[in-house]
Design a protein around this nucleic acid. Structure first.
Length: 212
DNA sequence: CTCCCGATAT
DNA sequence: ATATCAGGAG
């Protein structure tokens, strides 16, 4: 079976298993998702969701973050790892959004990745889940799951993104990202993956090599 | 490659 | 105790 067919079947199966799969971060605007995604680096969404209610209540626009007192902003996200870096990134990022984009979140990878604290993964998550623009976000879960399933042989996130974009139809890019992430968290875990209860093990290179 | 640097699981 | 976690910058 060719990789496109495998990818299609895998995504179809995962979608049936997890209908309405959605990014786990709570947000109600592109700005909120951008901030939440910056905070989520090397950190679980669950923990990000614990600080964002108070954070979003305190700062409502990009200008609010740009003009925020560093101490206060840091205080609101202190339970998140790398909180100093992230506070600095959010401020600088929002400052640039105000100065160069009139307070609106840009809607292209190139513009987004020029923002401080925003790398390719963050940019693609925002594009896909806030704007509905086809994008594949490659985080540690997508990297691991796509590798195990045999959808890519690359290890560099940017090349994995290329590989996946070639075998997954564009209209499924956003769904594919959230499905692979969710599957990685729940089932295809880094340590002790739950292969026996995996819905897509019949298509999985890792599984078939494990049971030889 | 190193630094950032807190909460949670084990 | 310590390994690891939805990364990005220098």
């Amino acid at each position: 079976m060719d990789k496109r067919d495998r990818a299609r079947k895998i995504l179809k199966t995962l979608k049936r298993e997890m209908p309405g799969a959605r990014i786990a971060l709570n947000f109600s605007s592109p700005l909120e998702l951008l901030v939440a995604t910056i905070l989520s680096a090397q950190c679980t969404d669950e923990r990000v969701n614990k600080v964002t209610p108070a954070l979003f209540a305190r700062y409502r626009t990009a200008r609010d973050y740009a003009e925020a007192e560093t101490e206060e902003l840091e205080g609101l996200i202190r339970s998140i790892n790398f909180f100093r870096n992230k506070a600095k990134s959010i401020k600088a990022c929002c400052n640039k959004i105000v100065e160069e984009f009139g307070g609106r979140i840009p809607e292209s990878v190139d513009e987004l990745t020029k923002l401080p604290g925003v790398g390719r993964k963050t940019a693609n998550i925002v594009l896909g889940s806030a704007f509905g623009i086809p994008a594949i976000g490659v985080d540690t879960h997508v990297k691991r799951v796509a590798g195990r399933l045999g959808l890519t042989n690359s290890t560099d996130p940017e090349r994995i993104e290329e590989d996946l974009s070639r075998i997954i139809p564009k209209e499924l890019w956003v769904d594919a990202t959230t499905l692979l992430i969710l599957h990685g968290r729940r089932t295809c875990k880094a340590k002790k993956p739950l292969c026996e209860e995996c819905a897509v093990r019949d298509y999985c290179d890792y599984y078939s090599s494990m049971r030889k």
